[in-house]
Amino acid sequence: MADDEHTDDAARTDGTGIVPPDDETPTWRERKERTTGLSRLTYEYFERSRREDQDLREESDYVERDVLAFPVWPHELIRNLALTSFFVGMIFFLASTLPPHLGAPANPSQTPSIILPDWYLYWSFGLLKLGPLNPDLAILGGEKLMADRTYGVVANLVVVGFIAIVPFLNKGSARRPVEQPFWASVGVMGVVFAFTISVYSMKTHVPLDSHLLLDLTFLVPPIAGAIAYAVLKTMREGYMYDLNRRYYKLRPPK
């Protein structure tokens, strides 16, 4: 440790005798890490793990692949196991606190006041009720091109089809919503539309005029999308930019 060139100057008091730390000198942080209680144990664990890791790597035939992504094993899976075991606990909690309902037995002759599928099909059910939007064609003498029901099925296909082609429309390296305000606002529009169309599917239970409800169903999503776009643009220009500057330096957007 001791450096001969400096030991003889030990008595200097003007401050010039201070030796700048070289690579061998432990920093204060390291010293602290190595000397006290739990942090010392941590340090020892890290050392041990580093050593064992090195041994394992040396004896392993695992070839690192050049994939620009986050490894599923062990990172993602261990993290996910920790989080999702909590979530599975939540399923048990919900199952024990809010057990499901069993209604009256099926009776074809008695139409119930509520005819609804489960909640996750509301959006599809709402699209089936879009009859009023089915255009009357002048060429066919005011007749509708297809039955209202068929129109609803087509609407479902259009929505699912649009979602399916999104990866072919939106390319590039942008990942965060702030990097792609347009597509993020399209997403917000879609989410809000899923909600409004679900509400529209329950139109007989909503205390609103059905024409007004239909208008709102199609007006609210673009408004929400526009707000999201404005917010994301502002964030991009503003403080998020500072936060991400390092990131942009590393991976400039195409």
């Binding site: 209604g103 037995p105 099926a106 009776n107 005819i115 609804l116 029901r149």
Partner: peptide
Amino acid sequence: WDQLAFWAGQIGVEM
């Protein structure tokens, strides 16, 4: 096969 099930089935048939 309660009321909800039956009428959800009805919706499915119509769809």
